[in-house]
Computed example of a mutant assay.
Amino acid sequence: MLTQLSRLALDADGRYATAEELQFLKDYLQTADQRARAYKTVRDNEAFLLEDLHSQVKNSDGSSLFKGTKDVSNFFKRDQKHILRVASAAMLFNDLDFLREGLLLWHRTIIKAFGVERPAQVACQVWPNVMGKYLPTDEYKLMSPVVGLIRAILG
């Protein structure tokens, strides 16, 4: 939404926005309460979500958390926490462009440079299950496009 508002401010400079140009704002306002609840749910359960994610990744492919003999779990946990926080903000503001351009493309470059793509790929497979456990269905529907974008870029 923030990206769309910025774009609208530029596009409608010196004139009133049309009804079509304002439709995204009406759509957002209809889901604002649900988005705030989903954001609060993720925020309040962050530690559980991340621990569950780490556990499932470890159980699914424990070797992915090692680069040679070095355990990269701490880096994985740090990165996933950052992704979760930015993803939650992207869901709250309904701004996938912010998530894609502000974090995911950069993060994909970093994990490739360090050769740690595998933990991110496994995490991408596990994210939907973990989010589905903690978010009620109506809130998960709002987070689903965010999880899908994470999977598409990092998975």
Results as ranks from 00 to 15, higher is better:
Ser63Glu: 14
Ser6Gln: 09
Phe66Glu: 07
Leu5Phe: 03
Thr41Glu: 04
Ala47Asn: 06
Ala19His: 03
Ala9Phe: 02
Ala17Leu: 05
Thr18Val: 00
Ser6Asn: 13
Val42Pro: 01
Gln30His: 12
Ser64Leu: 11
Ala17Asn: 05
Thr69Phe: 14
Leu8Thr: 00
Glu46Arg: 10
Gln30Gly: 04
Leu50Asp: 00
Asp33Cys: 08
Leu29Ala: 05
Arg37Pro: 07
Asp27Leu: 11
Glu51Gly: 14
Phe48Ser: 15
Thr69Glu: 15
Arg7Val: 08
Ser6Pro: 01
Glu20Trp: 07
Leu25Lys: 02
Val57Trp: 05
Asp11Ala: 14
Ala12Lys: 13
Glu20Asn: 08
Lys67Gln: 12
Val57Ser: 03
Asp33Arg: 12
Asp13Val: 13
Lys67Met: 05
Lys58His: 10
Lys58Ile: 04
Lys40Cys: 11
Ser6Ile: 07
Leu29Tyr: 03
Leu25Asn: 02
Phe24Ile: 11
Glu21Lys: 01
His54Ala: 10
Ser63His: 09
Leu29Phe: 06
Gln34Asn: 11
Ala17Thr: 03
Arg35Phe: 09
Gly68Trp: 13
Tyr39Asp: 07
His54Thr: 09
Ala38Ser: 06
Ala47Val: 09
Gln34His: 07
Asp27Glu: 10
Gln30Met: 08
Tyr16Ile: 08
Leu10Val: 08
Leu50Trp: 01
Phe66Asn: 04
Glu20Lys: 15
Thr18Gly: 02
His54Gly: 05
Ala12Thr: 05
Thr69Leu: 14
Gln4Ser: 09
Arg7Tyr: 02
Glu20Ser: 15
Asp11Lys: 12
Lys67Thr: 05
Val57Arg: 01
Ala9Ser: 09
Gln4Asp: 11
Thr69Pro: 06
Glu46Gly: 07
Leu25Ile: 06
Leu29Cys: 09
Glu51Leu: 13
Arg43Ser: 15
Arg35Val: 07
Leu49Tyr: 01
Asp44Ala: 07
Glu51His: 11
Leu22Asp: 01
Ala12Gln: 08
Ala9Asp: 00
Asp61Gly: 04
Gln23Gly: 10
Ala9Tyr: 02
Leu50Asn: 02
Ala12Ile: 05
Lys40Ile: 12
Asp13Glu: 13
Gln30Ala: 14
Phe66Trp: 08
Ala9His: 05
Glu20Phe: 06
Asp33Trp: 10
Gly14Phe: 06
Ser6Asp: 08
Lys26Thr: 13
Gln34Asp: 05
Leu8Pro: 00
Arg43Glu: 12
Leu49Phe: 10
Phe48Val: 14
Ser6Val: 02
Leu22Thr: 04
Ala38Arg: 00
Arg37Val: 15
Asp11Gln: 12
Gln34Ala: 14
Tyr39Thr: 12
Gly62Val: 03
Thr41Cys: 06
Leu8Glu: 01
Ala32Ile: 12
Arg35His: 03
Leu50Cys: 06
Arg15Thr: 00
Arg37Asn: 14
Arg37His: 13
Leu8Asn: 00
Leu5Ala: 12
Lys26Cys: 13
Thr3Ser: 15
Gln34Leu: 15
Leu29Val: 05
Arg35Ser: 03
Ala32Arg: 13
Leu65Arg: 04
Val57Phe: 13
Val42Tyr: 02
Val57Asn: 02
Glu46Trp: 01
Leu8Ala: 03
